[in-house]
Design a protein around this nucleic acid. Sequence first.
DNA 1: TCTATTGTTCGTATATCATCGAACAAAGGA
DNA 2: TCCTTTGTTCGATGATATACGAACAATAGA
Lengths: 84, 84
Amino acid sequence: MLYALSDPTRLGIVKGLAERGDQPCGPFCVGTAKSTLSHHFKVLRESGIIQMRPEGTSYINSLRRADLDARFPGLLQAILCAVE
Amino acid sequence: MLYALSDPTRLGIVKGLAERGDQPCGPFCVGTAKSTLSHHFKVLRESGIIQMRPEGTSYINSLRRADLDARFPGLLQAILCAVE
DNA sequence: TCTATTGTTCGTATATCATCGAACAAAGGA
DNA sequence: TCCTTTGTTCGATGATATACGAACAATAGA
């Protein structure tokens, strides 16, 4: 998990989801290739930090806050507070 | 800082310092080359996580808990708790 | 002075990672 | 049916990281 969040792009995604709520991948696609973003979302998914659910023509990403708090108590919040 | 702690070797060093208190590099030199350890200690030092003070013929490493808590409140503790 | 201990630095090899473009798959709407 | 949108997968590439041995510097002690 620390590895997943040690990349600035991925940390930015997590921060964005925390601040602006669930959203698809699109909004993060600024200045980065689609395939690169897809890779980062996959890393976040496989490390259990986010989940994607299909909705209409796209997918909605959301933070798995409850799961993370259960496995790493306080860690996500500490990281999000420190990101400012 | 997340990058520094995302490496298992470095996380092990930080955990060792937290559990067993200040100590030189030597005790961590099991199964890893001296130069490799020196590199990891340097990364930890440069990211502000530990500090080294000369003492006799060697150096003593210590966690910079106060500084870390000031900059990233609760983060170190959350990580150490999660490491078990 | 000589030797041992402790950690650093250097050069190098290997592995991993981030990034990209292009091609692809799935679903909705015209 | 055709086209658009959204995201994935597949190489390939360049950058970065990890790891090692060997040589080095500084210090303490015999």
